[in-house]
Computed example of a mutant assay.
Amino acid sequence: MALFSLLVAILIERLKLLPQSWQLDSVLDVYSKSLFGNKQLTSDVMMVLALILPAITVQVAMWAVDGFFWGGVSLILWIGISILCFSHQKQRQLFKSYMLAACRGDSQACYHFADELDPSVPLEAISTEDLGTRVGQIVAWSNYRFYGAVALFLIILGPAGAVFYCTVRYFNDESQKLNLDFPLVIDALKILDWLPSRIFAFGYVLSGQFSHAFVCWRQYGFSISCSARDIVMQVALAAEPHTKRSSAPICIQATLALLKLGKRNFLLLLVCLSVLTIFGVVT
């Protein structure tokens, strides 16, 4: 179910068939405002409840429909939840806007869209020559957060695991966006990201320049204190194929190289999942 659900979810996401109001972050926004509110979420108990309730609901639903119509209802639920978790049109639109601004040489717009791509960390004052590389790293990190990590949780823990990760990520992003101190969220996300980020980063090792990337992965991979963001971005940069720099106002070669590397990494994940499915390790 995991492989088929992933393939359908990726297809739906690429075709942009799911409206913004039906995407998971929009659903979680309604869920948070309707049942809790920012003031209530300052309590540890309410925060824990807000984090686990969507995953529990999904898991109970999976148990309830198990075996119905020879597993057909379970498959539909797998596909539906996968589509919700993988739909992130906002990030795609921001990246498209950045590329269009870069092609027309609009440096100010490029910095604006680069900031929007990853608002959690301010974009450092770098030169336009290095902006393409910086955005490429941000794209690699976004590919992990919105696709790689979700896929790994879906494969290992099923739909409930994917929903739980997305819920923790949503509340972490909300706390940063609204400058609120939600308890437990940052630590929970660090724990959830620790192992998947290293697995995903190793995919960059296998998908890019192995020797350089493996040295970088070995340096960061076994460090408990190294953040998921650092290991994904640094290994992706080390695995990046060498590209010729252009004389354009905004160099996008590095961005495109890292984007292609991210696509190869995700294809590698799908190939591994296919092999595991064939041998019955993953259903």
Rank of each mutant, 00 (worst) to 15 (best):
D173H: 15
S175C: 01
S175R: 07
K177E: 11
K177V: 06
K177Q: 15
L178K: 15
N179P: 02
L180W: 09
F182C: 05
F182G: 05
P183D: 04
P183K: 05
P183H: 06
L184I: 15
L184S: 06
L184N: 07
V185G: 00
V185T: 02
V185S: 00
I186K: 15
I186C: 11
I186G: 13
I186M: 12
D187K: 14
D187H: 13
A188F: 07
A188I: 03
L189G: 02
L189Y: 03
L189A: 00
L189Q: 09
L189M: 06
K190L: 10
K190D: 10
K190I: 03
I191D: 04
I191G: 01
I191K: 09
L192V: 07
L192W: 12
L192D: 11
L195H: 03
P196V: 00
S197V: 06
S197F: 10
I199Y: 05
F200E: 08
G203M: 04
Y204K: 02
Y204P: 02
V205M: 08
V205Q: 07
V205D: 03
L206T: 02
L206R: 04
S207M: 12
G208K: 05
Q209S: 12
Q209Y: 09
F210G: 03
F210L: 10
F210H: 08
H212M: 11
A213G: 10
F214W: 14
F214N: 08
F214C: 12
V215C: 10
V215D: 11
C216N: 12
C216W: 12
C216I: 08
R218M: 12
Q219M: 13
Y220R: 12
Y220F: 14
G221Y: 14
F222M: 06
F222H: 06
S223K: 15
S223R: 15
S223W: 13
I224V: 15
S225W: 13
S225T: 13
S225G: 04
C226H: 07
S227C: 06
S227W: 07
A228E: 10
A228W: 13
D230K: 15
D230G: 04
D230M: 14
D230L: 14
I231L: 06
I231H: 04
V232W: 04
V232N: 00
V232F: 02
M233R: 11
Q234W: 08
Q234F: 05
A236Y: 04
A236L: 11
L237C: 08
L237W: 11
L237K: 11
L237Y: 09
A238L: 08
A239D: 02
E240S: 05
P241T: 06
P241G: 10
P241Q: 10
H242S: 12
T243P: 03
K244S: 09
S246Y: 06
S246V: 03
S247Y: 14
S247K: 14
A248K: 14
P249A: 00
I252C: 12
Q253D: 11
Q253K: 06
Q253A: 07
T255G: 00
L256T: 11
L256Y: 13
A257C: 00
L258T: 01
L258G: 00
L259F: 07
K260C: 11
L261E: 01
L261I: 04
G262E: 00
G262I: 00
K263V: 11
K263G: 01
